[in-house]
């Protein structure tokens, strides 16, 4: 298999159609290690569809998706099932925060470690030493991650009653729990106010610098994208428009046309 020199993800000629409508059409881009990569486009441009293809929620019609996993091996994502993706080191968050209200914050975070458990159901049913040790170690790790995000004091509270900003962080923590190489953030700024968005930007940089993982940011909020991304890929109607640094994207004529209203505002 191809050696992804310095890349974590290589998307090549990705296409998917729903009943004749091409939602993603021949899209290619790649993400380097330790990079914050933005995927932008107007509403209905196919951003969400594109990353649903990457995470295998949808099976693409054609194209290749290569990913360098936690094990340093290159994997063909299309050969994997949805639930096998996280084990490779590719994890996503959800636009409308998908947590379990009844469970405590820390239990929600522990779900991120689901695939990392070695002890069997029998070990856990009878609380054999192996299961106890493992649960304890992973709990400690979850607390540490919550600490990095500054919400360890809420670990034992039910997720249900927490404010939105905290829930977003819990979802981050859950993603980090899987020790990922690449995190896909689905419109993380949606529903956040200005100061929370600024904090989010800081957090994203912190993740890249301290944990050494790459981030694919799928976002509407132009200020956040322009602020934190190293490179950006712009798409429109499922087609590739341009890729480059935030500055290059801002100045790209095709992108300006596709975006018009939004782009004029961002330039101003």
């Amino acid at each position: 298999m191809e050696n992804l020199n310095g890349l974590v993800l290589k998307v090549d000629a990705l296409s998917i159609a729903f009943g004749g409508l091409k939602a993603v059409d021949n899209l290619s881009f790649d993400i380097k290690e330790n990079e914050v990569f933005g995927l932008i486009g107007p509403n209905g441009a196919g951003k969400t569809t594109a990353f649903n293809c990457i995470t295998q929620f949808y099976k693409p019609n054609s194209g290749t998706l290569l990913f360098k996993g936690r094990d340093e091996q290159v994997h063909d994502l299309q050969k994997k099932k949805v639930h096998e993706i996280i084990k490779l080191g590719l994890v996503r968050t959800f636009q409308n925060v998908e947590l379990i209200r009844e469970l405590s914050v820390i239990d929600n975070v522990l779900i991120g470690a689901h695939v990392d458990f070695i002890s069997t159901i029998i070990d856990q049913a009878f609380r054999l030493p192996r299961a106890r040790r493992e649960e304890k170690a992973l709990r400690k790790e979850a607390l540490r991650i919550l600490g990095v995000l500054g919400i360890e004091d809420r670990a034992l509270l039910p997720a249900g009653g927490q404010p939105y900003g905290v829930l977003k962080k819990v979802e981050f923590a859950r993603a980090l729990m899987s020790n990922p190489r690449l995190i896909i953030l689905d419109e993380p700024a949606a529903g956040l106010n200005d100061s929370e968005t600024i904090e989010l930007a800081k957090l994203i940089r912190k993740l890249r610098d301290e944990l050494g993982c790459s981030i694919l940011l799928v976002e509407h909020d132009m200020r956040l994208v322009m602020d934190v991304c190293d490179r950006i890929c712009a798409i429109s109607f499922g087609k590739f428009l341009a890729v480059g640094t935030p500055k290059e994207i801002k100045e790209n004529r095709d992108v300006q046309i596709a975006y018009l209203g939004i782009e004029v505002e961002a330039n101003a």
Partner: peptide, 22 residues
């Protein structure tokens, strides 16, 4: 433990639990 959390996650959101490897 792990099993209960996974089942809870599944009931809450099939998509999210799958993304978490369930």
């Amino acid at each position: 433990g792990r099993l209960g959390r996974a089942l809870n996650a599944m009931r809450g959101s099939e998509a999210a639990s799958q993304a978490m490897g369930v």
